[in-house]
Each structure stands twice: as structure tokens, then as C-alpha cells.
């Protein structure tokens, strides 16, 4: 994205900050859901797009952020709570990154999926055996409008980071790694370090979204915080939108967030199976994502 495009998009986000003054009910809730997935899917694509590593760890980092709020929300001032959530997300992602980014392909997918489950079990064990309380009440003075504004700010920051990254040596290194990792090593790229750096940046944003979203629940337990469906939802959205460009994932987030909203309202009992069908359709029908489709249409090639 050019600086001008970024400025326009940021101005657009600033304008959207007015929404809570118009409605604080249904539309604000919908906007929060879209903004949440916009940050998560864009952060996911920032790492998985160029490296082509499919991560199912979104729920792990989201959950860490949310749980940090559940534990520290009443104890520390809000900005400090966010900071702690981000730091824990970063530290965990560095550990996990160095341990797993040597894995390739399907091993990485399985590991990241297992990671979310592992952390959920660890937190559960800790709560049952040490604190002797399953679940926590989240008492923090954060309004829905404030949640929405924080998500918009996160999205703006993420887009600015992504724009910088696209021009940076680090971003280019990731691109080369995605093209051919062997070549990447033989042109002097420390592939493990580059991948871990991106994984950490992406994970910090996921943890922050979890922290920002936590006050929406008044009650949190590990099963809610580390719900694996978040990982899958984010994956489908990013794939539908396309991971080639910074705003690509957004093209998947908006229609699917709206669709899921309708599905939960109309078919609450068949939600999971319908999501599965959507997943299959996305992968079969638009393998390059909507943004890839648009790019091909612009070039005039048959889509």
C-alpha cells in the first residue's frame, strides 16, 4: 500500500470511530465482531501469507490475551494489562516460534493446533489444582464503544506496520522464504529468525485482540478463551479474502462475519456444519482469495 492509500484507509477508520454515537446496540456489536476478525485475519495473513505456514495458533494467543485480562483486569490499570498481555503473547510466540518453525508443512499446522489445546489444558489444570476455581468474572470498566475504538486503533496500527513491512528487508526476506526457503538460506537470510520475528509480531496483535475483547464476557473460563473455532474462522476469512495484499483478508472478513451473524441467529444448532461447508466452498471456489480474483479480473485474464 502506498502512503496515500494508507492515509485514506486510516482516515476511513477514524470516520468509522463515530459509529457508537449513532447506535450502541446491534450495529455496534456487529462492527465489533467485524473489527475483531479484521485484526485477527490481517495479523494471521501477515505471517502465514508470505511464509505459507498455516497456523492454527490464533486461539492460543487470543486466549492468552483474554485470560490475562481475567486474571489481572482488576489488579492493574488497563494500559498495563494490555502491555502485559502483549508481552506474554510475544514471549510465548518466540518460544513456540524457535521450537516449531523448523517444522514444515503439516507438522507445523498440527503443532499450532495442539498448542492452543495444550495451553487450555494447562490453564485448566492450574485453575483446578492451584487457584481451585474454574472460571473467572471479568470486572473491568470498559464500555462496548471503548472496545470498538481499541479494535479500530489496533487495526490502524497493524495496517501501518504492514505497509512498513512490505517495503522493509524483513518483509522481502519473508517473501523470498515463501517462494523458496532453500534459496532464501543461500542468499544469506537467517530464515528461522525472520519467520520467528513475523510470527511474534502477528501473535502480539492476536493477544491484544483477546485482551481487548475479554470485557465483552462477564465470565471467562479456559474453554471460552481458548475456543479453537476462532483459529478456524480466522483461517477461512483470510483464505477467502486472500493473503497477497494487506487489505485482502478484510475482503473475506466482512462477508463471512455477516454470514456467520445470520447463521448463528437462524440456525444456532447447525452452525458448525454450515461453517464447515463454507470452508470447503472457499477453498474450492476461490483458491487465490477474493483479492486474487479481483487482481486477475483487473489484468483481464479469465478468472
Amino acid at each position: 500500500m502506498s502512503n496515500t492509500a494508507l492515509a485514506i484507509v486510516l482516515a476511513g477508520l477514524a470516520a468509522m470511530a463515530a459509529l457508537p454515537f449513532l447506535d450502541t446496540g446491534f450495529w455496534l456489536a456487529l462492527a465489533i465482531s467485524i473489527a475483531q476478525y479484521a485484526v485477527l485475519a490481517t495479523a494471521w495473513a501477515m505471517f502465514s501469507g508470505p511464509t505459507r505456514y498455516v497456523s492454527l495458533a490464533t486461539a492460543a494467543f487470543f486466549g492468552i490475551g483474554a485470560y490475562t485480562v481475567a486474571v489481572l483486569g482488576e489488579v492493574l490499570p488497563w494500559p498495563v494489562v494490555l502491555l502485559v498481555a502483549g508481552v506474554i503473547g510475544a514471549v510465548l510466540s518466540l518460544l513456540v516460534g524457535f521450537a516449531t518453525l523448523r517444522l514444515s508443512g503439516v507438522y507445523f499446522v498440527v503443532f499450532t493446533f495442539g498448542l492452543a489445546e495444550l495451553i487450555r489444558q494447562l490453564v485448566t489444570w492450574f485453575e483446578v489444582n492451584v487457584t481451585r476455581s474454574m472460571g473467572r468474572y471479568v470486572f473491568v470498566e470498559i464500555t462496548q464503544a471503548q472496545i470498538y475504538w481499541q479494535l479500530l486503533a489496533l487495526f490502524g496500527a497493524l495496517l501501518a506496520l504492514g505497509t512498513w513491512l512490505a517495503r522493509s528487508r524483513l518483509g522481502f526476506a519473508l517473501h523470498v522464504i515463501g517462494e523458496d526457503e532453500t534459496v532464501a538460506r543461500h542468499v544469506g537470510i537467517d530464515t528461522a529468525r525472520a519467520k520467528v520475528a513475523l510470527f511474534a509480531l502477528s501473535s502480539v496483535f492476536m493477544a491484544l485482540v483477546g485482551a481487548v475483547m475479554a470485557p465483552r464476557w462477564t465470565y471467562l473460563d479456559p474453554a471460552i478463551a481458548f475456543n479453537p473455532s476462532i483459529s478456524f474462522t480466522v483461517l477461512i476469512m483470510a483464505l477467502l479474502g486472500g493473503t497477497r495484499s494487506l487489505l485482502g483478508p478484510l475482503l473475506g472478513v466482512v462477508p463471512l462475519a455477516l454470514l456467520f451473524e445470520v447463521l448463528t441467529a437462524r440456525f444456532p444448532n447447525h452452525f458448525s456444519i454450515l461453517v464447515g461447508i463454507v470452508f470447503l466452498l472457499v477453498v474450492y471456489a476461490v483458491p487465490q482469495g477474493v483479492s486474487g480474483l479481483l487482481a486477475r479480473l483487473r489484468r483481464g485474464a479469465p478468472a
Binding site: 528487508r169 522481502f172 523470498v176 517462494e179 534459496v183 532464501a184 542468499v187 544469506g188
Partner: peptide, 16 residues
């Protein structure tokens, strides 16, 4: 690197 331009392919050798 098939997804990159010729110039970018060589820049890959220059950048790191």
C-alpha cells in the same frame, strides 16, 4: 523465485 520479477530475484541476492 517464480513469483518475483527478474530484478527482485537479483535484489534477493543483494539485500542480505
Amino acid at each position: 523465485l517464480p513469483g518475483l520479477s527478474l530484478n527482485e530475484n537479483v535484489v534477493a541476492g543483494l539485500a542480505f
